[in-house]
Amino acid sequence: MTHPTRPHRNFYGRLKGKHLKKSQEGYLAEDLDALSPGPVSWDDNPDRTPLDLDALFGGKDVWLEVGFGGGEHVIHQAASNPDVGIIGCEPYINGVAMLLGKVRRADVDNLRIHPGDVRDMFDVLPEASISKAFLLYPDPWPKARHHRRRFVTPEHLEPLARVLKPGSEFRVATDIPDYVRQTLEEVPRHGFAWMAEGPEDWRTPWEDWLSTRYEQKALREGRTPHYLTFRKL
């Protein structure tokens, strides 16, 4: 059988911190496999067979969070919206372990976790299968020569647009003015409309927003959060 060719993908950023707590090592060993959305990696799914989201979530609408950090927001959304299924992607294993602890305490059953690159997830998500997506305080890669590493580039936005349903919502939160600039330049080029009608629309958090540790750090350091909402055309 001929398999698709694995693309060469550079990954930038940390995959693991200095240490994990014993409890977090236990979460990873005991809970992660059961919360997997399915065979996502190239080693487990060389044919890139699409995930069966109906079987995974019982026909619910599916949301996607890209880079969930410590998991505060994604667990909040899962607990607040039991009528949807949510997939969280995060390559930083310390963040994955933190979320697994939160899953135990929240006792949610509508959340699945991919501990890896969201680009691999895009490969196996069916076209027009995601109803809402979140990109919250992504790595800003502040140096100009590193801006191509940001999420808001064609390498990520093209497959994101493919998997989002028409009319679905894409939320971006960032405290970095230049990231706002690049987001507003690039996202509409890939089939999205910015929904703001006035300044309060990007200055005011969404009604169901839960402030994350990254936002709290930004506020302590005097940076201003921006809340950008796009609609997939």
Rank of each mutant, 00 (worst) to 15 (best):
T2S: 10
H3F: 13
H3I: 14
T5V: 13
P7Q: 14
P7D: 15
H8Q: 11
R9W: 12
N10D: 08
Y12V: 12
R14G: 14
G17T: 10
L20G: 09
Q24H: 11
E25I: 09
E25S: 12
G26S: 12
D31Q: 10
S36R: 12
S36A: 14
G38L: 01
S41E: 07
S41Y: 02
W42K: 03
W42E: 07
D44I: 03
N45T: 02
L51S: 00
L51A: 00
D52K: 04
L53D: 02
L56R: 06
G58E: 10
K60C: 06
D61A: 07
V62M: 08
L64F: 11
V66M: 09
V66D: 06
F68G: 14
H73G: 12
Q77C: 15
A78G: 08
S80M: 13
S80W: 12
N81E: 06
D83Q: 08
I86Y: 01
I86W: 00
G88F: 00
E90I: 01
Y92A: 03
I93Y: 01
V96D: 02
M98F: 04
M98P: 00
L100E: 00
L100S: 00
D107V: 09
V108T: 09
V108F: 11
V108D: 04
R112I: 03
P115Y: 00
G116A: 01
R119Y: 07
R119A: 06
M121C: 08
D123C: 06
V124E: 00
L125S: 03
P126L: 00
P126G: 02
E127Q: 11
A128W: 00
A128M: 04
S129H: 02
S131N: 06
S131D: 06
A133H: 03
F134V: 02
L135T: 02
L136T: 06
Y137V: 08
P138M: 05
P138G: 11
D139H: 06
R145V: 01
R148M: 06
R148K: 15
V152K: 00
P154G: 10
E155M: 01
E155T: 13
H156Q: 09
H156T: 11
L160N: 00
A161E: 03
V163S: 00
V163P: 01
L164Q: 05
L164W: 02
L164M: 14
K165A: 11
P166E: 07
F170Y: 15
R171G: 02
V172R: 02
A173L: 04
A173M: 11
T174W: 05
T174L: 04
T174I: 12
T174A: 11
P177L: 15
D178T: 12
D178R: 03
V180N: 02
Q182F: 05
Q182V: 08
L184Y: 08
E186P: 07
V187I: 13
P188D: 14
H190D: 12
F192C: 11
A193M: 11
G198C: 10
G198M: 13
G198F: 09
P199E: 14
W202K: 15
T204I: 12
W206S: 11
W206R: 13
E207G: 10
W209P: 09
S211V: 13
K217I: 15
A218I: 11
R220I: 08
E221S: 15
G222F: 08
R223E: 08
T224L: 09
P225A: 15
P225I: 07
H226Y: 15
H226A: 13
T229Y: 03
T229H: 11
F230A: 09
L233S: 13
